[in-house]
């Protein structure tokens, strides 16, 4: 096999393995999951804001809210970065179904 053909095969493998079968459905599931996690972060910060607590306790709630929000943002970026490498057909047996 010539070098060009080998490179093309590898490019094809790298851009088709572990890709979602239905990209729109995948992105939809991702958005719903991230929105749910963002809601949890909002809820945690609301508890910290409105509940009568000692300053230390309030800080703990804010830290938890911040961690959950960062988790959603980081995971979303990671998934979108991975997804951006998909192009063309998916490879049977090596597909990516959100969330795992």
């Amino acid at each position: 096999m010539s070098l060009v053909a080998t490179v093309l095969t590898i490019v094809h493998d790298l851009s088709s393995r572990y890709c979602p079968v239905d990209r729109a459905l995948f992105v939809e599931r991702l958005a719903v999951t991230l929105a749910a996690v963002a809601c949890i972060a909002l809820l945690l910060s609301a508890v910290g804001r409105f509940k009568r607590l000692e300053p230390n306790r309030k800080q703990t709630w804010y830290i938890a809210a911040c961690a959950v929000a960062l988790f959603a943002a980081g995971s979303g970026m990671l998934v979108i970065f991975g997804l951006s490498g998909c192009g063309g057909a998916t490879e049977a047996g090596l597909t990516w179904d959100w969330p795992w």
């Binding site: 790298l14 393995r17 980081g74 995971s75 970065f81 991975g82 997804l83 998909c86 795992w100």
Partner: peptide
């Protein structure tokens, strides 16, 4: 190829990287 390989690895081990995060 390096760019595609980086994205391929993130997809392959997405669950692990998200857990580590």
């Amino acid at each position: 190829i390096s760019g595609l390989a980086a994205r391929y690895c993130i997809r392959q081990d997405a669950r692990g990287f998200i857990e580590l995060w």
